[in-house]
Design a protein around this nucleic acid. Structure first.
Lengths: 209, 209
DNA sequence: GCCTTTATAGCACGATCGAGCTAAATTCGT
DNA sequence: ACGAATTTAGCTCGATCGTGCTATAAAGGC
């Protein structure tokens, strides 16, 4: 029998081709033929690994979510390893900054995130994956805020659900703008906004009027 | 000669069909044939009024921008007419709330906004229109903030460009979430977030650390 | 060499699409 | 009725797409 190809690795490589085509031309151009060409394979080979086009799209989006999750996790681990008792606000900021497209790799990921999550609006098969990604972000933001409150970095009266909603909207809004209008939203400006936002959150306050 | 059709009205009606198809199925389904069917016309009729598919897309997006602009302007006029010297903060809040998808009509507009602006990423011909829409929002937010500072509603030291960036990101982020995850982001929660945001902006502060 | 398993390859078909183009219908003025 | 202008209509073609399906190549074990 022929040389064994690791199916999972092959699938990953094809998903990478989906990402490249989508980022460059839009998801609607990620046809089997275009993706096969981008991956340097014949369409028959691509179809050996994916039962149909939907299968490919689902796999690609799942792979994207996986990559984001791993990156955030690795970053959080690094932060904790470097100084478990360090400046909590700075750490929170750095962890949250990981959601922003501050360099080329993250920017491409953000492009793909936007592409797939907006496509999920009209593609039921991608819906659960979009929800999952959103859940992931909200959970982390909520945890960051809760932990900050617990250690006294935020006022006790802070409304965690509301501030989670607000902060995730801000992060995703900045990301959306960085993807669509990169000349208007630079890495410095995003960092500055995030820092300011966290600084304001930390101030003593009264409940919403 | 036959009964004259107002070309502009016909174009508007066809754009409405584009909106319906796009909102329901996604922009990639707004083919000439699908749009013609949605508009109750033969494809030949549609093509009499638009030189090609791109022309139709450009017109539709321009029409969308026009509608948003008119709606915001009318709302601002109404606010000023009702009480030119009224509670400035409440008025600012109400004006900015007009950018959020708080009812069905605005929600559909938000869906279309997201659909067209993300499509503009890979369609150069739509690019200027997306920029224009973004410019419009930023200009209004900036004006609101400036005016609030001028009348003492915001601290003199507030960084207007930074807060403009932050507030537009928040508004667009909430809108994005309301479109993609409507169960998670309700009209009440959006209003609450906006109110909180403006309340925090208004508090005395020191410049960013 | 044969068999089996795995991987590569792509033809063919029906569907949809945009656009070139032609033709017919409609309606008013003369 | 005719002519002109406007509107409606849709055939045709080449292109692209997903998918059913078949065929070939590749490689190891016996």
């Amino acid at each position: 029998m022929p040389k064994i190809v690791d199916p999972e690795e092959r699938r990953r490589a094809v998903a990478e081709a989906v990402f490249r085509v989508s980022a460059r031309d839009g998801l609607e151009h990620a046809s089997l033929r275009n993706v096969a060409e981008e991956a340097g394979l014949a369409i028959g080979s691509v179809r050996h690994y994916f039962s149909d086009h939907n299968d490919l799209m689902i796999f690609a989006m799942r792979e994207l979510g996986r990559r984001v999750r791993l990156r955030i996790q690795a970053h959080a681990d690094r932060l904790l390893a470097s100084d478990p008792e360090g400046d909590r606000r700075a750490m929170a900021e750095q962890l949250l900054a990981e959601f922003l497209p501050l360099d080329d790799a993250r920017r491409e990921e953000a492009v793909l995130w936007l592409t797939f999550t907006t496509a999920a609006r009209t593609r039921p098969e991608l819906r659960p994956l979009a929800d999952e990604m959103d859940d992931g972000v909200r959970a982390i933001v909520r945890r960051v805020l809760r932990e900050a409150r617990r250690v006294g970095g935020l006022p006790g009266a802070v409304d965690i659900p509301l501030q989670t909603l607000r902060l995730t909207a801000l992060l995703d809004g900045l990301t959306l703008h960085a993807v669509l209008y990169p000349e208007r939203v630079t890495p410095q400006s995003m960092r500055k906004v995030l820092r300011q936002h966290l600084a304001e959150l930390a101030r003593p306050t009264s409940p919403t009027p």
